[in-house]
Simulated assay, not measured.
Amino acid sequence: MASNKEEVKVFGMVGSPFSTRVEIALKLKGVEYKCENEKFGNLSDTLKNYNPVYKKVPVLVYNDKPISESLVILEYIDETWKQNPILPSDPYQRAMARFWSNFIDDKCMNDVRKACFTFDEKEREKSIEETKEALRFLENELKDKFFGGEDIGFVDIAAVIISFWISPIEEAFGLKLFTSEEFPKLYNWSQEFNNHPIVNEKLPPREILLTFYKGRYEEHFGSK
């Protein structure tokens, strides 16, 4: 039985895709953990002490040592618990997995944010096209059932934002970004990934996300 020091804790938030990444990875590894759910806009002092730089979720605590930033945490999980690896063993493929995961955060999601929160119609249309262009890169990169091949890997977990979160975002903001017609491979991947038993168990209720993003819309643009 693990001592308190060896206990794995995840400081996360219901509805956070970044927290969900960490929980999916731990579940795939078969690692037991305790989840400490934070409240949006009212983070605990404990969380802030564990992550004084960014003051946000997720934070993984193991052996009394906190680690923040979801992609960094995923790598740490893979290196600490060797079973069911999520990163490839080949150095080049590992580098590519890191590249595409960073691409999802730095390019795809930034384009989605701009499409959501831009007032100017022309700028919004430009952001929508940039989002679709980014998704086309992922469509072309997807060669197998998952980005990790026949099994879920690092990029798949990073892309949970696309597989599950993008739909309620589209609905709340009145956007059309990710369709089965334009991105058939990526769409089929999203269905496979979301319906995987481990992933499905960790996904939040869609209605929670829809309510949250509708609130963000009204906060930014005013009531519909």
Score class of each variant (00 low, 15 high):
residue 109 M to H: 04
residue 48 K to L: 13
residue 54 Y to K: 05
residue 43 L to W: 06
residue 42 N to L: 05
residue 40 F to R: 08
residue 77 I to L: 14
residue 29 K to C: 13
residue 70 S to D: 03
residue 71 L to E: 04
residue 84 N to R: 08
residue 88 P to S: 07
residue 93 Q to Y: 07
residue 48 K to Q: 15
residue 112 V to D: 03
residue 77 I to D: 02
residue 71 L to V: 05
residue 114 K to V: 11
residue 26 L to N: 08
residue 57 V to L: 01
residue 96 M to K: 13
residue 78 D to A: 00
residue 85 P to M: 10
residue 104 I to P: 00
residue 49 N to A: 14
residue 83 Q to W: 03
residue 74 L to Q: 02
residue 45 D to S: 13
residue 77 I to M: 13
residue 57 V to Y: 00
residue 48 K to T: 05
residue 56 K to Q: 09
residue 91 P to Q: 04
residue 52 P to C: 02
residue 31 V to R: 09
residue 66 P to Y: 11
residue 23 E to H: 09
residue 70 S to M: 10
residue 110 N to H: 06
residue 71 L to Q: 12
residue 84 N to E: 02
residue 64 D to L: 05
residue 59 V to G: 01
residue 33 Y to L: 11
residue 39 K to S: 15
residue 112 V to F: 03
residue 44 S to T: 15
residue 38 E to K: 12
residue 23 E to I: 15
residue 56 K to V: 08
residue 20 T to D: 11
residue 96 M to G: 03
residue 100 W to G: 01
residue 95 A to W: 08
residue 113 R to C: 14
residue 73 I to R: 08
residue 73 I to P: 01
residue 63 N to W: 03
residue 66 P to E: 07
residue 37 N to Q: 13
residue 83 Q to V: 13
residue 90 D to W: 08
residue 64 D to A: 13
residue 66 P to W: 11
residue 26 L to W: 09
residue 104 I to F: 00
residue 94 R to Q: 12
residue 20 T to A: 15
residue 108 C to W: 03
residue 26 L to A: 10
residue 71 L to R: 14
residue 110 N to E: 14
residue 90 D to P: 06
residue 67 I to V: 11
residue 23 E to L: 11
residue 112 V to L: 13
residue 37 N to L: 10
residue 35 C to Y: 15
residue 32 E to P: 08
residue 32 E to N: 10
residue 30 G to E: 09
residue 43 L to R: 15
residue 91 P to R: 14
residue 94 R to F: 08
residue 103 F to G: 04
residue 62 Y to C: 04
residue 56 K to S: 02
residue 105 D to R: 10
residue 70 S to G: 01
residue 93 Q to W: 03
residue 65 K to E: 11
residue 58 P to Q: 06
residue 74 L to T: 11
residue 79 E to P: 07
residue 45 D to G: 02
residue 68 S to K: 00
residue 34 K to C: 05
residue 89 S to R: 12
residue 60 L to T: 02
residue 34 K to A: 12
residue 50 Y to I: 06
residue 33 Y to H: 10
residue 97 A to C: 06
residue 61 V to M: 09
residue 73 I to C: 12
residue 108 C to G: 05
residue 68 S to G: 12
residue 102 N to P: 07
residue 59 V to I: 12
residue 94 R to D: 03
residue 29 K to I: 05
residue 75 E to M: 03
residue 72 V to P: 02
residue 86 I to N: 03
residue 55 K to T: 08
residue 106 D to A: 07
residue 106 D to Q: 14
residue 46 T to S: 09
residue 81 W to S: 00
residue 94 R to V: 08
residue 45 D to F: 05
residue 26 L to S: 04
residue 28 L to Y: 04
residue 46 T to R: 15
residue 26 L to V: 13
residue 57 V to M: 00
residue 92 Y to S: 11
residue 107 K to L: 07
residue 19 S to T: 15
residue 83 Q to H: 05
residue 68 S to W: 00
residue 73 I to G: 00
residue 40 F to P: 06
residue 21 R to C: 15
residue 59 V to L: 09
residue 70 S to V: 10
